[in-house]
Amino acid sequence: MNLNIRNELPEDTKRISKLTAAAFEQEQHSSHTEHFIVDALRQAGRLAVSLVAMKNDDIVGHVAISPVTVSSGAAGWYGLGPISVLPDCQGQGIGSSLIKAALAKLQSKGADGCVVLGDPDYYGRFGFKPHAGLELPGVPQEYFQALSFGGDLPTGTVQYHESFDATE
């Protein structure tokens, strides 16, 4: 597969929104607002990393990473997601490629670590693990996971940016 991963460009925003809506349309564990979340993060200037996967001239995947707040005051922590791959391109390693590239980019920016809400079997492949003492309220511990880039893991409650409440 000929896949190119690059930073999003201003002219990509509408295609990213359509891709994200399509990627989550049939997902039962989805709010179906992920495309609104990405748009709101962008408008708020909170996209620390925003990468697209290109196959030929088509955007087939997107990953967003944004800063999170930890109640202990720990700085340098980010949240992975939403991550989207076109339904007919899923299962081809595009999501994995996007996650690896996004984490590498985040680490090169000096981040201390990253959290993710999702399937522990999937995200565990990238080094994410649940950690006692680091929580996202209302979420079972095994689905909220963290990856440290070398330092100590913070403790406390994690809060995502208010853009994650976007519904339009």
Results as ranks from 00 to 15, higher is better:
residue 1 M to H: 06
residue 1 M to C: 02
residue 1 M to G: 10
residue 3 L to S: 01
residue 6 R to S: 12
residue 6 R to C: 08
residue 7 N to E: 14
residue 11 E to V: 14
residue 12 D to R: 03
residue 13 T to K: 15
residue 16 I to N: 01
residue 16 I to C: 00
residue 17 S to L: 04
residue 17 S to Q: 09
residue 18 K to C: 07
residue 18 K to F: 06
residue 20 T to N: 07
residue 22 A to W: 00
residue 22 A to C: 05
residue 23 A to T: 03
residue 25 E to A: 13
residue 26 Q to H: 06
residue 27 E to K: 12
residue 27 E to V: 14
residue 28 Q to Y: 11
residue 31 S to W: 09
residue 34 E to Y: 00
residue 40 A to S: 12
residue 40 A to H: 03
residue 41 L to V: 12
residue 47 L to P: 04
residue 47 L to C: 15
residue 48 A to M: 14
residue 49 V to Y: 00
residue 52 V to C: 15
residue 52 V to G: 01
residue 53 A to H: 01
residue 54 M to W: 00
residue 56 N to M: 04
residue 57 D to E: 13
residue 58 D to F: 08
residue 58 D to K: 11
residue 60 V to I: 08
residue 61 G to N: 03
residue 61 G to F: 01
residue 63 V to C: 08
residue 63 V to D: 02
residue 64 A to G: 14
residue 64 A to T: 02
residue 64 A to W: 02
residue 65 I to W: 05
residue 68 V to F: 04
residue 68 V to G: 08
residue 71 S to G: 14
residue 72 S to V: 07
residue 72 S to F: 12
residue 74 A to P: 02
residue 76 G to Y: 06
residue 77 W to F: 15
residue 77 W to T: 15
residue 78 Y to K: 09
residue 79 G to Q: 10
residue 79 G to S: 15
residue 80 L to P: 02
residue 81 G to S: 14
residue 83 I to G: 05
residue 84 S to M: 03
residue 84 S to Y: 02
residue 84 S to N: 06
residue 84 S to E: 05
residue 86 L to Y: 03
residue 88 D to M: 04
residue 89 C to N: 09
residue 90 Q to F: 07
residue 90 Q to M: 09
residue 90 Q to W: 04
residue 95 G to I: 10
residue 95 G to V: 06
residue 97 S to L: 15
residue 97 S to R: 13
residue 99 I to W: 06
residue 103 L to G: 07
residue 104 A to T: 11
residue 104 A to F: 02
residue 105 K to C: 08
residue 106 L to S: 04
residue 108 S to D: 07
residue 108 S to A: 13
residue 108 S to E: 09
residue 108 S to P: 02
residue 111 A to N: 03
residue 111 A to R: 00
residue 111 A to S: 10
residue 111 A to H: 05
residue 112 D to H: 14
residue 113 G to K: 00
residue 114 C to F: 07
residue 115 V to L: 07
residue 116 V to M: 12
residue 121 D to G: 11
residue 125 R to E: 09
residue 130 P to R: 08
residue 132 A to Y: 11
residue 132 A to I: 14
residue 133 G to R: 10
residue 134 L to V: 11
residue 138 G to M: 08
residue 140 P to S: 04
residue 141 Q to T: 12
residue 142 E to D: 11
residue 144 F to G: 03
residue 146 A to M: 02
residue 146 A to Q: 04
residue 148 S to N: 05
residue 148 S to L: 01
residue 152 D to V: 13
residue 152 D to S: 15
residue 152 D to M: 15
residue 153 L to V: 09
residue 154 P to F: 14
residue 155 T to C: 10
residue 157 T to A: 13
residue 157 T to K: 10
residue 157 T to Q: 15
residue 160 Y to P: 00
residue 161 H to Y: 03
residue 165 D to E: 14
residue 165 D to N: 11
residue 166 A to F: 12
residue 167 T to L: 03
residue 167 T to C: 05
residue 168 E to C: 08
